[in-house]
Amino acid sequence: MSLSLWIAMIIAALGTYLLRLLPLLWIQRRLTRTDDDGPVDALPKWLVILGPMMIAAVLGVSLVPRTADVPGWLATVIGLGVTLAVWRRTRSLGWPVVAGVFTFGLMVVATRMVV
């Protein structure tokens, strides 16, 4: 990379870091000022609602399988079903994901052999 390219990369990196850091510094100051209300109450309501929505959006974006054909979609639906079923039994983070990935893999292989 040329020097100008390195500088561009560093500006992009620094800018991305500041996008993550500056809102923290802002809200920490706000939380310190309104400490009596309790931390969650001190957050703006829209922000409290936006948090879970961002997670739901990341889920929606990640749902599309690498190969978006019938076997891929079928494996996605069944894999999510198994993930959900295991979560309802275990209420843990790890096992539902392991079971979901395993089922998804099996379904991809199985449906490709049939379809």
Binding site: I55, V58, L59, S62, R66, L80, L84, P96
Partner: peptide, 16 residues
Amino acid sequence: EVMPFALPALFLVLIV
């Protein structure tokens, strides 16, 4: 193709 499914599975568990 299979490993990236860990992400939607994880997010599902987090959002449910």
